[in-house]
């Protein structure tokens, strides 16, 4: 084969690879802008606090609830069974295996909707599947799950189920978050260990 032809083929191959590779594969959005915008504008990216309460009560293994607040805020109080991936630490490659998977849905929450929306957009832009935001964040959780009370004479079966769901989630939230710091740390470490075993990591 003519060496000139060989080098040209090689260069062409490199060019094709360069043309289709993102600038930084791990840290640059893989979705096209129009695609990400249309996903962002859809309403199906939200789950309600009542849905999350149901996931907590049923210990649903098809979802992972992700607290995107700081470690300090997470330690102060968090939704039972949630894991902490602070927004500031999102780029840490350690989180990629947790977020970029097809097994479970990622449900992000912050105190309000802002930080969770940032994380949702970044995770979806990076091409991670199954991302959702708990609408209203922890403020909505407090308002609806922790503080809501039924005030009426008669309660329907649907309302009864709704309030029972909230009551059970409220109990779990209070129980976990009332633990002394030492026990809480022990509990979270045990959970992290369990998570790493499920992910196939080592101790």
């Amino acid at each position: 084969m003519d060496p000139r032809l060989k080098y040209s083929t090689l260069l062409l191959g490199v060019g094709v690879i360069l043309a289709f590779l993102p600038f930084d594969a791990a840290q640059t959005f893989r979705l096209k802008s129009g695609e990400l915008l249309s996903k962002s504008a859809a309403d199906n990216m939200y789950v309600s606090v009542d849905q999350v309460a149901r996931f907590v009560n049923s210990e649903d293994s098809t979802v992972q609830i992700i607290d995107v607040r700081s470690a300090e805020q997470f330690k102060a109080c968090n939704i039972p069974s949630s894991i902490n991936i602070p927004f500031d630490d999102l780029q840490n490659p350690l989180w990629e295996a947790t977020l970029n998977q097809k097994k479970v849905k990622n449900i992000f929450y912050g105190n309000g909707d802002q930080t969770a929306s940032y994380v949702w957009t970044i995770a979806t832009g990076l091409g991670y599947p199954n991302n959702f935001v708990m609408k209203g964040g922890l403020n909505e959780w407090f308002k609806t799950v922790m503080l809501s009370q039924y005030s009426g004479d008669k309660i329907t079966a649907t309302e009864n189920a709704l309030f029972e769901n909230r009551l059970n989630a409220r109990k779990a939230f209070t129980q976990i978050n009332s633990l002394p710091d030492s026990l809480k740390t022990k509990f979270f470490n045990a959970k992290r260990l369990m998570q790493s075993k499920l992910d196939g990591g080592c101790n």
Partner: peptide, 29 residues
Amino acid sequence: MVVLLILVVIRISDQGLFKKDVKTAIEAT
């Protein structure tokens, strides 16, 4: 080389592609 250059130009000029690192967004917020 010309082909390589053309491909790179196509890549850079595609307005639908994101070109920034997510780090820039995290730091700016």
